[in-house]
Computed example of a mutant assay.
Amino acid sequence: MKALSLSQVNTRLAFAVLAIGILYLGRPFLVPLAFAGILSLLFMPVSNWLERRGIGRIWATLLCVLLFLLLIGSFVGVIYAQAASFSKDWPQIQTKLTTGIEQAQAWIQQQFGVSRQRQLQALKEGVSKLSSTSSGSLLAVFGGLSGFLTGLVLVVLYLFFLLWKREKYRDFILKLASPENRPSVNDALSQISSVSAQYLSGRLVSMGFLALFYSIGLSIVGVENAILMSLVAVIPTLIPYIGAFVGGAFPLFMALVSGSPDMLLPTLAVLVSAQIIDNNIIEPLVMGAQLDLSPIFTIIAIVLGELIWGVPGMILFEPLFAVIRIVCAHIPQLHPYAFLLENEVEEPSWVKAVKKKMG
């Protein structure tokens, strides 16, 4: 077997470092563009459906953007309405929270011999340290909010232009390839479009199921502001694996604070049941192995995404790795990398049978 020369190894390492550097330094530009790219693939069938019914391209594109904004507005509206309801219950929750803190202080004093005065002193010192940096924290919050709004505006603008002139960008990529390679490049682009759109739509269906299941289950259990807690618990599930644990902490905390310790187990049962159904039935049906990524590289994508792009990277790097796998699968020299990235876990036979019957 022909060994790699030192210059070849150095070239590949330099390319990897350069790529990571570009991704890190260019995140203010690349993150909104990546979100808009995935959303454009999701809304492309909607735009095509509108155009087949006689609506012009630009009006179909504007309607898709308006639909996107309506979805965001509806979500924010539900959150706001539930938050307003939550604020009415805050005095009662605060009373229970105070009682819980007093019980915790008594338990700490009994178990570790730390008096309540020393506990309060330590708490005051922590609060004073926090208040000393409050101005910087407020600036960070306002900076994050302005950055989010700026990013949202950029996503909307990119989404409009990516949908409006979508054939131009596809033709541009095809023109970069030699004539004999264009069929392979066209096939790769079709796979990337299909996989990304199906993954995102499947993720939204999964989140919708979890929100509905959580809302019904937590309402039956008696958790205060069940709809708000359900939405707050569902949002982190955009991040694979980790998001379910992060989101589940909010309903459990609310059950403990606004209810009683007896509500913890029923609330936990609702969360676990929803995740079991979602992981074993909903996701295999609506997504399956669409990304075809190995589980270990899914985790690597989440960790690497957080290091480079933060929370957006944890969401975006999984489909990005899937795009890399598809590209490697269409370049003979990179086939080993596609083999390394692809999923080695076969899709369950019952999922294949259901999908076959559903066409």
Score class of each variant (00 low, 15 high):
His335Cys: 05
Phe172Pro: 09
Phe43Ser: 08
Lys124Thr: 14
Leu157Ala: 06
Val155Pro: 07
Leu162Tyr: 02
Met229Gly: 11
Lys165Asp: 04
Phe15Val: 15
Gly151His: 05
Lys356Ala: 11
Arg166Ser: 08
Leu212Phe: 03
Ala197Met: 02
Gly113Lys: 06
Pro319Arg: 05
Pro179Arg: 08
Val311Tyr: 04
Leu67Asp: 07
Glu102Gly: 14
Gly305Asn: 06
Tyr169Met: 05
Thr237Glu: 13
Leu271Arg: 06
Ala188Arg: 13
Trp164Gln: 13
Pro332Asn: 02
Leu159Tyr: 01
Val156Leu: 10
Met44Asn: 09
Glu306Val: 15
Val153Arg: 03
Ile72Pro: 05
Thr298Gln: 12
Ile315Lys: 00
Leu4Lys: 06
Met287Phe: 07
Gly222Thr: 10
Val17Leu: 13
Leu341Gln: 06
Met44Trp: 10
Leu66Met: 04
Met229Ile: 03
Phe161Trp: 09
Ser230Ile: 02
Gly305Tyr: 02
Tyr337Lys: 02
Gly288Gln: 08
Phe317Asn: 04
Val155Ile: 09
Pro332Lys: 06
Leu18Ala: 15
Asn225Tyr: 07
Trp49His: 03
Ser7Asp: 08
Val65Ile: 04
Ser206Gln: 09
Leu291Pro: 03
Ala289Asn: 15
Leu159Arg: 05
Leu25Tyr: 00
Leu212Gly: 10
Gly113Phe: 00
Ile101Ala: 12
Val153His: 01
Leu340Lys: 11
Leu163Ala: 01
Leu71Asp: 02
Ala226Met: 04
Pro179Cys: 01
Leu163Asn: 00
Val46Lys: 02
Ser349Pro: 12
Met314Val: 01
Gly208Pro: 08
Gln290Gly: 09
Phe317Cys: 02
Met44Lys: 06
Gln290His: 11
Leu130Asp: 03
Leu157Lys: 01
Phe253Gly: 14
Pro332Phe: 00
Pro336Ala: 00
Asp187Ile: 15
Gln94Leu: 15
Leu189Ile: 12
Leu39Phe: 03
Glu167Met: 09
Gly151Lys: 00
Ala255Cys: 11
His335Asp: 04
Ile55Leu: 12
Gln82Leu: 09
Thr267Arg: 10
Gln92Met: 12
Ser273Tyr: 08
Ala83Pro: 07
Phe172Val: 13
Ala36Lys: 01
Gln103Phe: 08
Leu18Met: 07
Leu212Tyr: 07
Asn48Gln: 14
Ile108Trp: 06
Tyr337Glu: 15
Pro45Val: 04
Gly359Asp: 01
Leu154Lys: 11
Gly247Gln: 02
Val327Lys: 06
Gly143Asn: 03
Lys124Met: 08
Glu346Leu: 14
Leu341Trp: 05
Gly313Glu: 03
Ile315Ser: 09
Pro45Leu: 04
Glu318Val: 15
Ser258Asn: 11
Leu340Ser: 07
Phe297Val: 11
Ser5Asp: 04
Ala197Ser: 11
Pro312Ser: 00
Leu271Asp: 09
Asp278Trp: 05
Leu149Ala: 14
Gly208Thr: 02
Asp89Lys: 12
Gln290Ile: 14
Gly126Asn: 01
Glu167Gly: 09
Arg325Leu: 10
Gly144Tyr: 03
Gly144Pro: 05
